[in-house]
């Protein structure tokens, strides 16, 4: 397996409480990895360690390593903004920035000074809105405020904004939980299309979504990884009793 992210001996503590216990996993390149488990099991915490969002919460401590392409993102001389450029995030609730649709997509590119002139920016905005499946709906009103979009459209806009800084990895923290079924399906099909180019890690608590999306599955329980493996193996023949119980709907 070609691992894009490797997690080694990762422990996370919230003040005194241990949230993640000795995590050792590998996340395969250009596949969709789904992290699942009952609520409070540390799925989101694990996801937040991948783009160093955990440190935005006060009072957290972390030991161990998270390697992206072999480089530990928690090394002293690592630039956290570079990490977040490489590892994009699709949040649980769509969070359009309080500016126009166009400016939302341009935002990250501008921050990193990725394009030279307006022409390039315009082309890029179109490109990423097309990838996110939003172009046809918004190309006539690019300069409307992003908040005028529906929730589902907002989430696709956030996807476009995230992709525009050319990440290699996309994290999704229950990215469809705030959306209606049709919008959810739309986002899911985008993610499946995108997996050829991006390594994708999704946290979900719905088993059905996990089955629809996953190539690789990580099952967590009470801060520990119980089982990790290819989707076919885990869903059809779980090795661990707890995983079996979860898949059968007992937890």
């Amino acid at each position: 397996m070609d691992a894009h992210i490797q997690v080694k001996n990762l422990n996370v503590y919230y003040s005194k409480q241990q949230a993640l216990k000795n995590i050792n996993i590998e996340i395969p390149k250009n596949q969709i990895t789904v992290i699942m488990g009952p609520s409070g099991c540390g799925k989101t915490t694990l996801l937040k360690t991948f783009n160093r969002f955990l440190e935005l919460t006060g009072g957290t401590q972390l030991t161990g390593e998270v390697l992206v392409d072999g480089q530990n993102i928690y090394d002293r001389d690592v630039d956290v903004t570079e990490v977040r450029k490489v590892v994009g995030l699709l949040a649980q609730r769509p969070s359009p920035l309080p500016m126009s649709i166009y400016d939302n997509v341009v935002y990250g590119m501008n921050i990193h000074r990725m394009k030279k002139d307006r022409k390039e920016y315009k082309a890029a905005v179109r490109h990423y809105l097309e990838i996110a499946g939003l172009w046809d709906e918004v190309h006539k009103r690019l300069h409307d405020p992003a908040t005028s979009l529906s929730i589902g459209q907002q989430q696709r806009l956030c996807l476009a904004r995230g992709l525009a800084v050319e990440p290699e990895i996309i994290l999704g923290d229950e990215p469809t939980s705030a959306l209606d079924p049709i919008s959810s399906q739309n986002i899911e099909s985008r993610l499946i299309e995108l997996k050829k180019q991006y390594t994708t890690v999704i946290v979900t608590h719905t088993l059905r979504q996990a089955k629809r999306l996953a190539d690789y599955v990580i099952y967590m329980y009470l801060g520990e990884v119980i089982e990790a493996g290819s989707a076919r193996e885990v869903f059809n023949d779980p090795q661990h009793e707890r995983t079996r119980a979860y898949l059968e709907g007992q937890i």
Binding site: V68, D69, Q71, I73, D75, D77, V78, D79, E82, I111
Partner: peptide, 12 residues
């Protein structure tokens, strides 16, 4: 390797 290294002298 080292692509995430901090460029301290970058403007931002």
């Amino acid at each position: 390797m080292g692509f995430l290294k901090k460029k301290r002298w970058q403007r931002r």
